[in-house]
Amino acid sequence: MVSHDDDNNTHVVEEVMVAEAEKRLVLTIVIFIAMQTEALPLVTKFQLSQGPDLVFPKEVPWIRYHGIYKDLRINIICPGKDRVLGVDSVGTVSASLVTYASIQALQPDLIINAGTAGGFKARGACIGDVFLASDVAFHHRRNPIPVCDRNGICAKKTFPTPNLLKELKLKVGKLSTGDSLDMSPHDEAAIIANDATVKDMEGAAIAYVADLLSVPAIFVKAVTDIADGDKPTAEEFLQNLVAATAALDQAVTRVVDFISGKCISEL
């Protein structure tokens, strides 16, 4: 039988370990990006290489770009292309698997999920805006049973970065995640309930895994389409992808520059 004293001691040890971890310099970063189109400008910016390595199983299409930028070990990870259809393996399943494998293999001090997203004009989002997510939640996991409904939504606060926000002056909003680019009436109602400003197809899944393994994670999202606008989502997404990716590239570079030389607790 475990005594209350043992429980208290365990909590104290965990708190001490967290405090010590937050005092360590950030040295290794994993940047998860779902689409290679979004990733390649940053690969060039940070002068990363794809070189062959044994970080991931040879059977998976996942791609790792890596190198040293300033004092940071940067790893940009993409889930790669579907081997049959040749399209990016977007969505929560790939995001969860790749995030788990990356944490296990690379032991990062910080995860950055960077990517494009839909935005809501009713919440102040415009094409090309870049948001740092304050909260994440799912909008497609519906289970109308008490407690199970909250488990499906899986709402979480993201890792707080008050100094980064003050310095970079990024917009802040809640992020809602689902496995579809478009938005059904059920999804829309859930997104409104989540009080979300932006929606994507990976963020909450990455947050779940990062929280499970106690790795700080932040979420940088550039708006490609207006989800509550009057244009077809797919059309607007493709039309604005290049411009939004450029805005994302600039924002992530500024985030990484700010992180360089700092401890987690200084973010």
Rank of each mutant, 00 (worst) to 15 (best):
D179A: 04
T158H: 03
G229I: 00
T197K: 02
M201K: 04
T224W: 01
G229M: 00
P216N: 05
A222Q: 03
T224I: 00
I218A: 03
K156R: 15
K174T: 05
L212G: 11
V198K: 02
E167N: 09
C154D: 15
L168R: 06
V220N: 05
A190M: 11
A205K: 03
T224F: 02
P216L: 05
A205M: 05
V198H: 07
V220M: 08
P160N: 04
D228M: 00
K157H: 11
M183V: 09
T158D: 08
K157C: 13
D182R: 00
K221H: 06
A189Y: 02
A189D: 10
V220I: 15
E167Q: 12
D187A: 14
K221R: 15
D149F: 10
S184V: 00
V209M: 14
L213N: 04
G229A: 01
G203R: 01
A227Y: 01
P185Y: 03
I153F: 13
M183C: 15
E167S: 10
L170T: 07
K166H: 14
N194C: 14
A222T: 02
E167H: 08
H186G: 12
K231M: 14
L175N: 09
T177H: 07
A155Q: 14
V209H: 07
I218L: 12
D182L: 01
G152R: 05
L165C: 13
P160C: 07
A207V: 02
V209A: 02
L165Q: 13
P232N: 09
D228H: 00
S184P: 02
S180R: 12
A222C: 11
T177Q: 08
V172A: 15
L168Y: 04
L213R: 07
N163S: 09
D211I: 11
G152I: 01
L213G: 07
T161R: 00
A222S: 14
I153M: 14
L212P: 06
K199C: 14
D230N: 13
G178C: 05
N194I: 07
K174E: 07
V223K: 00
K169M: 08
L164G: 02
A210V: 09
S180Y: 10
N163T: 09
K221D: 04
K166I: 02
L181D: 04
R150P: 04
T161I: 09
A193I: 05
L168M: 11
I192Y: 05
A222Y: 03
I191P: 01
A155C: 12
L175Y: 00
